[in-house]
Amino acid sequence: MDRHIGDMDRHMVVEVEIGSLSTADSPRTSGVDPEHVQALAVVQTPLPPITVHRPTMRVIDGLHRLRAAELQGRTKIPVRYFDGAADDAFVLAVESNVTHGLPLTTADRKRAAARIIASHPQWSDRMIASVSGIAPGTVADLRRRAPGGRAGEESRIGHDGRVRPINGAEGRRLASELIAQNPALSLRQVARVAAISPETVRDVRNRMMRGEDPVPRRGRQADREDTVAPRVGRPSAVPDRDAAQDRAAAVKRLKADPALRFSEIGRTLLRLLNLHTISMEEWDRIIDQVPPHCRGVVAYLAAESAERWTEVAMRVQSKVAETA
């Protein structure tokens, strides 16, 4: 929530009359969860202050804490004020309810993302995804289906705060020239000069190593900052069976490699990879047993983990190309 810090004093807390507060315009369309309110109402230690949009006195974060205070018969509640614009207040409400407390449902997060696309069209898919707790690809799909789509857009603000062009073809070409002239330049050095993301620079470098055009064919959309990792081919040592068996066989072979077995880093890698050898049937049983109130957070963490593994795949694959 760093983008909002300038609009909120995190150290100033004031007592505010509950009757003066508004609960309108919440991203939680289903309203409060009575069981969660009851659970908060019996907590003996003081709960964190709620966040309120000062210009409208609307509750941004802490609706359940507000209802719990009412249930306790209190007339005042500790408040931190946010002084930004109404659209930014909604963004903060979504972000707050994704990162802690009772998570928003998937439907609420998608609705919130669609609204943020409309109010902050200059934000990148990845930036909106980080706020709303859904995947960047889902944000991209919502943006395509929104009225007007991508019409008139030339650049967006990325997750790192930098402004980059949507069509990164020229940036990719410049990056390829810089890499060819000086292969020792870091991804970030090239990214700064070419005005594209480091992930896109990595994709350009990988394409060059494979002898491909640094600018992908139209429609693959890899020139956006939400670059998708190239598909990593199946190693020849892995037999052609179903996916779970493939993974298990590959991990088993890695476990037999002394270079991994007898190093701490290697054993850590093996433990991580071993988590992904279970079958889809086992995953189905796990998914079915996720408690309803945890599903939003689990989905968010699974999507984040998928992105991290995609990044790992890209980086390892680039090293494969380097040694080929």
Rank of each mutant, 00 (worst) to 15 (best):
D2F: 10
I5N: 07
G6R: 03
M8Q: 04
R10D: 12
V13N: 02
E15M: 14
T23F: 07
S26D: 07
T29L: 11
T29S: 14
S30T: 12
V32H: 03
V37M: 02
V37G: 00
V42Y: 02
P49V: 04
V52A: 04
R54G: 06
M57D: 06
I60G: 00
L66C: 00
R67Y: 01
A69N: 01
L71D: 02
I77E: 02
P78C: 03
Y81I: 03
Y81Q: 02
G84L: 00
G84W: 00
G84H: 02
G84F: 00
D88V: 05
V91T: 11
E95M: 12
V98C: 04
T99R: 15
P103L: 02
L104C: 06
T105M: 09
A113I: 06
A118R: 13
P121L: 01
W123Q: 03
S124T: 03
V131E: 06
G133P: 02
P136N: 00
G137S: 10
R143P: 05
A146H: 09
R150F: 15
H159N: 11
H159M: 13
R162L: 12
V163H: 09
V163G: 07
P165Y: 02
P165L: 04
I166V: 15
N167G: 13
G171C: 04
L178A: 05
A180V: 05
A180T: 12
Q181S: 15
S186N: 05
L187P: 00
V190R: 01
V190K: 00
V193I: 15
I196D: 01
S197Q: 01
S197Y: 00
P198C: 01
V201T: 02
R202T: 01
M208F: 08
R210P: 01
P216K: 03
R217M: 11
G219D: 12
Q221H: 13
A222K: 12
A222F: 08
A222N: 15
D223H: 13
V232Y: 06
R234A: 08
R234V: 11
P235V: 09
R241N: 12
A243D: 14
Q245A: 14
A249P: 03
A250K: 09
K255V: 09
A256H: 11
D257H: 10
I265E: 12
T268A: 14
L269G: 12
L273R: 03
N274L: 07
I278G: 06
S279A: 09
S279I: 04
E281M: 09
D284R: 14
V290A: 10
V297C: 09
V298I: 10
Y300N: 11
E304S: 12
S305N: 09
S305M: 11
W309M: 08
V312W: 05
V316N: 07
V316M: 13
A321I: 08
T323V: 14
